[in-house]
Write a protein that binds this DNA or RNA. Structure first.
Lengths: 103, 103
DNA sequence: ACAATACTTGGTAAAAACGCCAAGTAAAGC
DNA sequence: GCTTTACTTGGCGTTTTTACCAAGTATTGT
């Protein structure tokens, strides 16, 4: 019943892959469908090499698939349920200290 | 619409609060109920001050409540649904074992 | 009051993450 | 072939995170 170390390290990899503003933004953007690296570079406004490294982190965590087509590399989410995950995430903390239902 | 910056920064805080092996282990342990700091120190095997700082990170992210009773400080999860969250997390990546060349 | 326990906070050194530039690879077009 | 485009990888300085020790606070017990 206690946590398996393998499962935990897998969880950590996924969590870390989302624990950066650019990577979270990428994950959110990919919910609408695949994007090539240069589109994601425009989205996050960082150097192409930086974005590429972020994508590598996410891919190695198992979050993304990549596919090269012509000159472009397209990334897409491997999971259909990231939206669920985010709602789950937003629901994690009942209230920080402020009002609720402010959206 | 793209993500709100405020919502994203809150998401990031929560995700970061879980993106460390000791903190994830703490979160998992607290699913069974509140624990005092020294119990959690025994669990993660780090210095008491280290554990205390981890707990501060988690509390500031909104994940934990603390309550002092006597000499002890007890921490508990603020959310009832961390288990759901973890299942959601484990479900994020369809095929665990599949890894694309890591080089 | 004094001592002990349980924790927090400050300081700091080490480790990890980050981001840019430069260089390298691969596909497409000429 | 050579050039361009799209991306990846290596290198390296900068920033952030982490973990310990030491010192401080609060409460309990004597």
């Amino acid at each position: 019943m206690s946590s398996s170390a393998a499962r935990d390290s897998r969880r950590i990899a996924v969590i870390k892959a989302l624990a950066h503003p650019s990577r979270l933004a990428i994950a959110e953007a990919l919910q609408d469908g695949e994007r090539c690296v240069c589109e994601l570079r425009d989205l996050v406004g960082a150097d192409l090499s930086t974005v590429s490294k972020h994508l590598t982190v996410m891919r190695k965590a198992g979050l993304l698939d990549m596919e090269k087509r012509g000159l472009n590399v397209f990334y897409r989410l491997r999971c259909p349920c990231l939206m669920n995950f985010f709602e789950c995430l937003d629901g994690l903390v009942p209230e920080p200290a402020s009002r609720r239902s402010a959206r």
